[in-house]
């Protein structure tokens, strides 16, 4: 923890042009999503603002006093506005499910590493089993059984993600547990919970942050994929994935803009996160620093 926010680390981060580019991408897109209602010329969720006569208009089309920069979809929604609102969903799902799985995974990893024995075996076996199946399949299984919805998608992605944190945190906890400061904390009478959360946790947080960054990208892709398959969020509030799906259906009619632009937005988010994540991993990974 001590090392994470040090000036050096920040400086090192900014030494990489790619990482800065990634960070700029993330910041710009996140701000655009947060302030979507100010930026977007139209509220795609408000049926009163939609006009079916404006369906499938190419980029640059002007109607009802609105300039449809990136064209419109089947409902007459402006693709640009829908992307801004859709990014909200993507980023929200990505962030929330990542935070949930980071918390659950970190706690389980701490417990497994700190207590060892049967608890450890149980948690890690479960993790092993889950890891032997691709994330998409597990999410698919959960969605197939529980049905659609934003809440379900967040649960599915949370369930998929916890393993990565649990494994890493357990490993670091095992190493930390043997260190002197843990012994001395125990000697002065700090309880298990105190040792785990006050003493060990801050020392195993760096990898959690690195994994978290990369997992946000994965969570966003997973949400988009599930929505694309029609298992995600409802069509009335399209996320980037469902926008691409609806565009895909009219691809042969020549309405390419409905699926191309949301995909570009999705890719830019994911790329930005990957660039930042790569850099963070390089900086915070002590193995590479030697």
């Amino acid at each position: 923890m001590k090392g994470i926010f040090k000036n050096e680390t920040v400086q090192e981060f900014f030494e990489s042009k790619e990482a800065v580019f990634g960070l700029v991408l993330i910041v710009v897109l996140t701000l655009a999503a947060i302030f979507a209602n100010f930026i977007a010329p139209q509220n795609p969720y408000d049926l009163k603002e939609l006009n079916l006569q404006n369906a499938y208009k190419p980029p640059g089309y002007v109607a009802d006093g609105i300039r449809f920069l990136l064209g419109t979809d089947d409902q007459g929604r402006g693709v640009f506005s829908t992307i801004l609102y859709g990014m909200r969903i993507s980023l929200f799902v990505g962030l929330v499910s990542t935070v949930f799985s980071a918390i659950i995974g970190t706690i389980l990893g701490l417990i497994a590493g700190y207590f060892g024995g049967k608890v450890d075996m149980l948690i890690m076996r479960l993790a092993d089993i889950q890891l032997s199946f691709p994330a998409l399949l597990i999410a698919l299984m959960i969605m197939a059984i529980w049905g659609q919805g934003l809440d379900k998608i967040i649960i599915a992605i949370t369930v998929v993600g916890w393993v990565y944190y649990a494994r890493t945190v357990r490993g670091s906890t095992l190493a930390e547990r043997e260190k002197e400061y843990v012994d001395s904390a125990r000697v002065v009478g700090v309880g298990h919970l105190g040792i785990m959360f006050k003493h060990i946790l801050p020392n195993v947080l760096a990898p959690v942050i690195v994994i978290g960054t990369v997992r946000i990208a994965n969570a966003i892709i997973l949400e988009a994929t599930l929505s694309f398959l029609g298992l995600g969020v409802p069509v009335t509030k399209p996320s980037l994935g469902s926008m691409i799906a609806s565009g895909y259906q009219v691809l042969f009619s020549g309405y390419w803009w409905v699926s191309v632009f949301p995909g570009v937005a999705l890719m830019l988010i994911v790329m930005g996160i990957n660039l930042v994540g790569d850099r963070l991993r390089d900086i915070l990974n002590p193995k590479l620093k030697r």
Binding site: A224, G241, G247, Y248, V260, L266, M267, M271
Partner: peptide, 18 residues
């Protein structure tokens, strides 16, 4: 390869069809 891991599979499919 960076693009490769950043493109969602399904979008690549849609673009290839396009």
């Amino acid at each position: 390869s960076l693009f490769g891991i950043s493109f969602p599979t399904f979008w690549v499919g849609v673009m290839l069809i396009l």
